[in-house]
């Protein structure tokens, strides 16, 4: 898959269609975001997986085997107790959309390529609708997520509209699928879609209201007010952030007033959150923010029939949501 992403990026760059291709690179033994502006850098391109071919340097592991018996795995959410995905896929995802918005503000007439997973594409659609990005200036190169990552994310749609096909190695005839322009008609793997509400949400729903409240309060008490949930979020772009409004949340103390701080964000994000999970991964207090926003999204789509970024969720999907009330 990665070779094909590189091929497409190369074509796009060589044709002059894009100024740069925003993706991930592996450099200095770590994986981070990178804007590829010339084809000769593409060797460093990676998709953000932490196992398989993009595994961390084997020397890193060896280095530790000397005096430290076991080295903590790079895990995104060990505290959540959720099963880690075996493939390590998507373990180092970055808010590429957010970076693209920042770059485009300075270079509005340039066209950029960008690597997208399902959630990234949901984000792009919302950002187009909110006039944060110009759809004509963005070329998407999609990749689909493996099932274990989709399960971990409890993802409703772990692929973008079009994705680079994985199977070309066994079947050379699929080559035309990699051009990134064709609409895929088949899901890359089955089963694909989670049932609503997601398990993490359902588990909480099953608690008594009082217990559920206490459960959240215990989590919120750990918040160190890093604003990481906001700063990493590809859908947060307000100039004046309500979380910093002294009338809403007193400044200068940790934990910030709770649940105000967290509910303020959940409410504000309800019509924007595209369920990428980057906030949960960035939270040093291991607060299950994604679950909170999933719930806020459920409530929202019950009310309005819309789920941000999903173009093809049918009304019947949405109708399946339980009619639940307060949080």
């Amino acid at each position: 898959m990665i070779e094909h992403v590189k091929t497409i990026a190369k074509q796009l760059l060589e044709s002059g269609q894009i100024t740069g291709f925003l993706s991930l690179k592996k450099e200095h033994g770590q994986i981070g975001p990178h804007l590829f502006q010339s084809v000769d850098q593409l060797d460093y391109l990676c998709l953000g997986d932490t196992t398989g071919t993009e595994n961390r340097e084997s020397s890193t592991e060896e280095r530790y085997s000397g005096t430290v018996e076991s080295k903590p795995e790079i895990e995104t959410n060990r505290a959540s107790g959720k099963q880690e995905n075996q493939s390590g896929a998507g373990k180092s995802r970055y808010p590429l959309n957010k970076i693209l918005v920042r770059i485009s503000r300075n270079y509005p007439s340039d066209c950029f390529g960008i690597l997208v997973r399902g959630c990234d594409e949901r984000g792009l659609k919302r950002l187009f609708a909110l006039n944060q990005l110009d759809p004509d200036k963005v070329v998407r190169v999609g990749i689909a997520c493996p099932q274990d990552l989709a399960d971990e994310c409890e993802c409703l749609e772990p692929w973008p509209d079009k994705w680079v096909n994985d199977t070309e190695k066994t079947d050379g005839s699929e080559k035309e699928k990699i051009d990134g322009t064709e609409k895929s008609d088949k899901a890359p793997h089955e089963p694909v879609r989670q049932k609503l509400p997601c398990e993490s949400v359902a588990r909480l729903e099953s608690l008594e209201a009082r217990d559920r409240f206490d459960w959240w309060m215990e989590h919120f008490a750990r918040c160190i007010k890093c604003y990481g949930c906001r700063d990493i979020c590809p859908m947060c772009f307000c100039k004046e952030c309500s979380l910093q409004d002294d009338n809403l949340v007193r400044t200068g103390e940790i934990p910030p007033e709770y649940p105000v701080f967290h509910l303020a964000r959940a409410v504000h994000m309800a019509e924007r959150c595209i369920d990428c999970g980057l906030c949960s991964e960035a939270c040093p207090a291991a607060i299950p923010l994604r679950t909170l926003y999933k719930k806020a999204g459920d409530i929202m789509s019950n009310e309005s029939g819309v789920r941000p970024g999903y173009s093809d969720l049918t009304p019947s999907d949405i109708g399946n949501l339980p009619q639940t009330g307060e949080y």
Partner: peptide
């Protein structure tokens, strides 16, 4: 942007 693979902070700051 916090580094996701860094041994100290794993994507947090």
């Amino acid at each position: 942007i916090p580094c996701k693979t860094h041994p100290m902070n794993q994507g947090k700051l």
